[in-house]
Design a protein around this nucleic acid. Structure first.
Lengths: 208, 208
DNA sequence: ACCTGAACACCGTTCAAGT
DNA sequence: ACCTGAACACCGTTCAAGT
C-alpha cells in the first residue's frame, strides 16, 4: 500500500512530523466546515482530518472545541472591524451619510459571510470564557460608536451619551442581519434587500 | 399551584409498558435540559432518560432530534403569541402606546425565557423542513403587523405598506432581545434595561 | 401501535508513547 | 514542543424483537 496521506490543506505543509502551522490550518478548516455543513455540522475531528493530523493534535493548540470556535469568531470580528473602518474612510464627510454607510457595510458583511456571522453570535460562545473575543467584539462596536459621536457633535442626532443611541442602533443592524441570514424576513413575506432596509431605517432617523 | 400538570414529566417511572404521553414528556424534558445546560447541552438520549424511556423511544414520535427541537420552538412561538395578544388586550387605546406595549412585551418574554428564545431562533432550526414552525412564527409576527396597521390608520406612523415598517421594527425588537440575552450589550458597556430600551426607541419613532 | 436492547458509526477528550 | 494511537464515555440513529 502506498503511503498516500490526506491532501494538504491551504498553505499547510506536512513534510515533517510536525505540521508547522496547525493552529491556522485548523481555524481555516473550521470556517470551511461551518460554511459547508452549517454551524452545527462543525466537528473537531473533521477539522483535524482536513488539516491532515490526528484527532488529538488540536489539543496542543486549543483547550477544547469551544476555544477553536471562539478563535474563529474573534477573527470574524476583526474582519468586520476592517470592513467597517474601510467603509468609514471612503464615506462622505456628512456624518449622517457616514452612519448610513457603516450600517450598510455591517449588514453587507454579515450577509456575505453568514456562517462566520453565525459563529460570532452563536449561543455557544461564552464571552466570559474568551476575553479576547469580547475585546474584538468591542472593537467592532467602537466603529459604530465613533460615527454616532460624530453625528451628535454635528447636531444630527440627539442624545448626550453615544451609548444611549448605540444600543438600539446596533440592535437594529444586528437584528436585520441575523433575521435576514436565517431567512426569517422572507419567511414572513418581507423581500426587501436587508441593506436597503438599514439604509431606509437610518435615513428615517434623520427625518428622512 | 394547579395539580393538572403533565403526568410523567418528572422522571417518575410509569406503571405500564407504554408511556402514555411521551411526546409531551419529551418536549418538556427538552426545554428543561436547554434551560439547565444551554441549547448546545441538549441531548436526545438525556431527554429520553428523563422521560423514563429508552434512547430509541423518541423515534416513535419525532423523526429526529431536529424535529423535537422544532416542536419546542413552535411551542415557544405560540407562547410568545399568547403573551403579545394578552398585552394588546390590556393596552391603552392609543395606537402608539399599544405599539410600545407590545414591543415591551416581546422583549420581556424573550428575556424571561432566554433558553426558549434561543431555540426559537437557533441556527439549527430549518423552517423549510418544519412548516408548522414557520406558521407559528408568522402568527407572532402578525401581532406586530396588526398594531402597526393600527398606527398607520391613525396617522401615527407613515408608510403605506405595514410590512415596510414591520421589518425594521421586528429587527429592532429581536436585536435588542437577542443581544440582551447573550450578554452582548453588557459586554460593550450598555447596562440599560432592554425593555426600557425598546420603549425609548419606539417612543422616539413617534417624535418623542 | 409503542417500546426495548443491542448494534453501528461516529464525537470530544485524555494520556502514554513516539519524533 | 508537537504529534500519534489507543482508549473511554458518550451520542444519534436503526432495526429486530418484545408487549
Amino acid at each position: 500500500m502506498s503511503e498516500e496521506k490526506s491532501p494538504v490543506t491551504t498553505g499547510a505543509r506536512r513534510d515533517s512530523y510536525h505540521h508547522g502551522d496547525l493552529k491556522r490550518a485548523l481555524t481555516h478548516a473550521a470556517l470551511s466546515l461551518v460554511a459547508e455543513r452549517g454551524p452545527k455540522g462543525f466537528t473537531l475531528t473533521e477539522a483535524a482530518r482536513r488539516a491532515g493530523v490526528s484527532a488529538a493534535a488540536p489539543y496542543r493548540h486549543f483547550a477544547d472545541k469551544a476555544h477553536l470556535l471562539a478563535t474563529v469568531a474573534e477573527q470574524g470580528f476583526l474582519e468586520l472591524h476592517t470592513a467597517l473602518t474601510t467603509t468609514a474612510a471612503d464615506a462622505a464627510s456628512d456624518p449622517a451619510a457616514r452612519l448610513i454607510s457603516i450600517g450598510r457595510a455591517y449588514v453587507r458583511w454579515a450577509v456575505d459571510h453568514p456562517d462566520h456571522y453565525r459563529v460570532m453570535f452563536g449561543a455557544d460562545n461564552d464571552k466570559a470564557q474568551h476575553p479576547s473575543l469580547a475585546v474584538a467584539a468591542g472593537q467592532a462596536f467602537g466603529d459604530l460608536l465613533d460615527v454616532i459621536t460624530l453625528c451628535q457633535a454635528a447636531g444630527k442626532l440627539r442624545g448626550q451619551e453615544p451609548g444611549q443611541v448605540a444600543g438600539p442602533l446596533w440592535s437594529l443592524v444586528h437584528g436585520i442581519a441575523s433575521l435576514a441570514i436565517d431567512g426569517e424576513l422572507r419567511n414572513v413575506g418581507i423581500d426587501q434587500d436587508p441593506e436597503d432596509m438599514v439604509a431606509d431605517a437610518l435615513s428615517a432617523l434623520f427625518g428622512r
